[in-house]
Amino acid sequence: MTYIPLNDYPRKWIFTHQSMPVEADDLDKIKPMTQARSAQLWRDNISAQSPDADRFASSDWPSKTQSWINEVSWMDEWDSDDPELPEAVLEHIQWQDDVTVYFCYEKYNVIETKWDVFKRNWKNFLFFDDGPILLGRRREEVLWFQTNGTVKLGKRSA
């Protein structure tokens, strides 16, 4: 099994909260992965040894300065009534809407969805902003959201 039902996901409330409810069509496309599948994706794409963003080893690509192109604020847009991602993020990530993305909270907590679903509902995903990383399937561009309200824009191949 690759996914757990959204109703069984411990953080389901971030997508059903009355202040920012996610449309039913989008809820169907938000797929939390099982712990085993999350761990495999994390090992293969982020870190073989570190369980979360707070403990990256110097050999992990997120720790390398050359992986990062820019860092911009996301907090002002998150707090605003504007639903759009920060412009710098949209300029950095120019994927087709149907690209599969992985929002990686930590080694055992990864959500799979589509880029258009993430763009529409990014504020929900960031109710937990403890260093999550957004990857696209077979894409090198990456986002690393920081707890200080900034997001690092980078490339995995760096």
Rank of each mutant, 00 (worst) to 15 (best):
G131T: 04
E87R: 10
E91M: 07
R138K: 13
E112L: 06
E84Q: 12
K119L: 04
N124Y: 02
V101W: 02
E84P: 00
N70Y: 05
Q96I: 09
D129I: 00
S80W: 01
F127H: 11
S58Y: 07
R120C: 00
I69T: 12
N121W: 04
L90G: 09
G131P: 09
I93W: 01
W61F: 15
T100F: 02
D97M: 03
N121Q: 08
Y102K: 01
N70D: 15
Y108H: 13
D98K: 11
Q66E: 15
K114F: 11
S59C: 03
W95E: 05
P86H: 09
Q66W: 01
R120Y: 01
R137W: 09
K64F: 00
V99L: 09
Q146I: 01
R120W: 00
F125P: 07
Q94T: 14
V142E: 02
P132H: 08
R120E: 07
V142N: 02
W115S: 04
K123V: 08
P83N: 07
P83Y: 06
Y102S: 12
P83E: 08
S80Y: 01
E87A: 12
E106G: 00
F145K: 05
D60F: 06
F125H: 05
I111N: 04
I133M: 13
F118L: 12
R120V: 03
R138L: 04
D60M: 06
E91F: 02
F56H: 13
G131A: 06
W115H: 08
A57W: 08
D81K: 11
D81P: 00
W78S: 11
I93C: 15
F125I: 06
R138M: 04
T113Q: 10
V72A: 11
W74H: 08
E141K: 10
F56T: 09
V142W: 01
Q146D: 12
F118E: 03
R139N: 09
E71V: 14
T65G: 07
S67Q: 08
I69E: 13
A88G: 01
L143Q: 03
I93G: 01
V142M: 01
F125D: 07
S63A: 14
T100N: 11
L143T: 05
W95L: 05
V117L: 03
W95C: 07
E91I: 09
E106H: 15
W95P: 10
V89L: 10
K119D: 01
D97K: 13
W95H: 05
Q66K: 14
E84T: 08
Y102W: 13
Q94W: 00
K123H: 06
D98A: 11
F127L: 11
Q146V: 01
S67A: 15
V142P: 03
Y108M: 10
D76R: 12
N121A: 08
D98C: 01
P132L: 09
F128T: 13
W144T: 00
S80M: 01
D98F: 05
W74Q: 04
G136K: 04
S63K: 03
M75R: 14
E71M: 13
E77R: 13
I93S: 01
S67K: 08
R138F: 03
D81W: 00
Q94C: 08
Y102R: 05
P83H: 06
Y108G: 14
W68S: 12
G131C: 07
